[in-house]
């Protein structure tokens, strides 16, 4: 892992906010994603995860703040530069079958990115076929339509399609959602392998903390549109500093035969972003909340080594041991 300070960030979000009308979906999120790194965004529904990645992908313009890719502001990209950005940044979708144009065959779905970007198909097609084998698909799927292949195969087609243009940044939205446990590991291995072979940088969204743990260098925890904790995966997931992160980790039923863990569940539900709580947005559900949390929104503080937390009462203030 290269040192973050020495390398230029590939993707850089600075004070990024997104409102839908007057409802805030993302509030002042900042992070840098360095080449070759995997950063995972975790949080529950309504946390603003998909809004965050849609803004990072330039699909919706931010309300405030900037998204920079390779040093350039995405919002201001035009013409040839905008096209190059669309080539460099690809995405794999949560519902892989729904993300494949229903009337096309797998063959034309794989050729489509080449056609859009005017890449000569004759020269690149052998590479596409290699990619198809690499993601574990037989050539017999080429003439099938999306509804004729299984969910696992659609997921692999989606991955191959995202890589046809050899992007630099891959955005993975819940890449293992809905998969059986028996193939989940296979997909994680595939993504990790592809990352190594293609030098990919990955921005992932997942609610599966085990998958996040297996893939990520860094983790960002989102709650009601705000980054409440960011840091290296081993810090955030093993010694969380925010009470919400701790609750999220404790909520996953642990596989531990013979031993029952009864972590006190987090009370209440994610509040509506239309009507966010005063002070710290997490205070109505937080076991540590006091008068200050209700009144004052906590500023982000730095613990160590890029581990940041927005909490008045972090679970530990001392630098976490790596």
């Amino acid at each position: 892992m290269s040192h973050p300070l020495l390398s230029l960030a590939l993707l850089s979000l600075d004070g990024l906010s997104l409102n839908y009308g007057t409802v805030p979906a993302v509030r002042a999120v900042s992070f840098d994603l360095h080449p070759g790194e995997t950063l995972s965004v975790v949080g529950e529904s309504g946390s603003g995860k998909s809004s965050l990645i849609r803004t990072a992908l330039g699909l919706v313009p931010p309300t405030a703040g900037t998204v920079r890719f390779d040093g350039r502001e995405v919002k201001s990209l035009r013409g040839r530069e905008a096209k190059a950005f669309r080539r460099d940044v690809q995405m794999i979708f949560q519902d892989p079958a729904a993300a494949l144009s229903p009337r096309m065959t797998v063959r034309s779905l794989l050729a489509e990115p080449l056609r859009i970007h005017g890449v000569a198909e004759r020269d690149t097609w052998p590479g596409v076929l290699d990619l198809l084998r690499r993601v574990g698909l037989p050539e017999s799927v080429l003439d099938k339509h999306p509804h004729q292949i299984s969910g696992g195969q659609a997921r692999r087609v989606g991955i191959a399609r995202a890589l046809v243009l050899r992007p630099r940044l891959l955005v993975a939205d819940e890449p293992t959602a809905g998969l059986d446990l028996s193939v989940q590991g296979d997909i994680v291995n595939l993504l990790v392998g592809l990352q190594r072979d293609f030098g990919l940088t990955i921005l992932m969204v997942s609610h599966n903390l085990d998958v996040v743990r297996a893939m990520s260098d860094r983790v960002l925890v989102l709650y009601l549109g705000r980054a409440v904790e960011v840091g290296r995966a081993e810090h955030v997931l093993n010694v969380p500093a925010h009470p919400y992160t701790r609750a999220l980790l404790a909520a996953v039923p642990r596989f531990d035969p013979g031993n029952r863990h009864r972590a006190p569940p987090l009370r209440g539900e994610v509040p509506s972003p239309r009507n966010p709580p005063s002070g710290c947005a997490f205070h109505p559900r937080c076991p540590l909340a006091d008068a200050r949390c209700r009144a004052e929104e906590p500023a982000e503080r730095i613990l160590t080594d890029g581990h940041r937390v927005a909490c008045h009462h972090p679970l530990h203030a001392v630098p976490a041991a790596a």
Partner: peptide, 24 residues
């Protein structure tokens, strides 16, 4: 056994090869 081996668990090492059950 194969199914239980697929459980990732808290002790997983980053970018370690995970277990899966080949085939369908």
């Amino acid at each position: 056994r194969a199914l239980l081996a697929c459980e990732i668990g808290a002790g997983v090492i980053r970018r370690a090869t995970l277990a899966s059950i080949p085939g369908e």
